[in-house]
């Protein structure tokens, strides 16, 4: 058995996914380079990976989120970026976890972003009056039509 000597001890790595109509992964990277001080930033097709001390990563991630909070999603990663053990080129195929991300990003995130936008439009009082649906998963939401969606519908009518 070969000894294992870990690297990046004490660091955290976070994935920052962006699924936005207005910003690209490059915009995100640009911002990250501006605000990061000595953090490792790796640009990927879906966004970024940020590695460094937990506090620093937390600070940068908060700053990145503010670009487009409803379309940026963050998650912890066990490995540092570019680790050969998880690299597609070395494995021959994607690691299994990739497909889980692919599913959430392609099939679910657009609806979650919509949900975030609608909730963003509610004030504290409206939100606190919402009730969980008894015996059913989820929340009872009144028929709210958010401004953005209303505008989209109106634009569509005009075509």
């Amino acid at each position: 058995m070969n000894p294992y000597v870990p690297a990046f001890i004490g660091t955290v790595t976070k994935y920052v996914f962006i699924e936005s109509p207005e910003y690209t992964p490059s915009d995100l990277a640009l911002r990250a380079y501006e605000v990061s001080e000595g953090l490792m930033i790796k640009e990927t097709c879906f966004g970024l990976q940020v590695t460094g001390s937990p506090d620093e990563v937390g600070r940068v991630v908060t700053s990145l989120r503010s670009i487009d909070p409803n379309h940026i999603f963050v998650k912890d990663r066990g490995f540092p970026p570019g680790d050969p053990r998880r690299c597609r080129a070395n494995l021959g195929g994607a690691r299994p976890g990739y497909y889980g991300h692919e599913f959430e990003v392609s099939s679910v995130i657009p609806y979650v972003s919509h949900g975030l936008e609608v909730l963003e439009g509610m004030d504290e009082k409206e939100f606190s009056e919402l009730e969980m649906m008894p015996g059913k998963p989820g929340l009872r939401i009144p028929d709210v039509l958010d401004v953005k969606r209303l505008k989209e519908l109106m634009d569509a009518e005009e075509l």
Partner: peptide
């Protein structure tokens, strides 16, 4: 060498 055949979610 062992490898894992590459697929897409749609393939799966």
């Amino acid at each position: 060498e062992v490898f894992f055949p590459d697929l897409t979610l749609a393939d799966i």
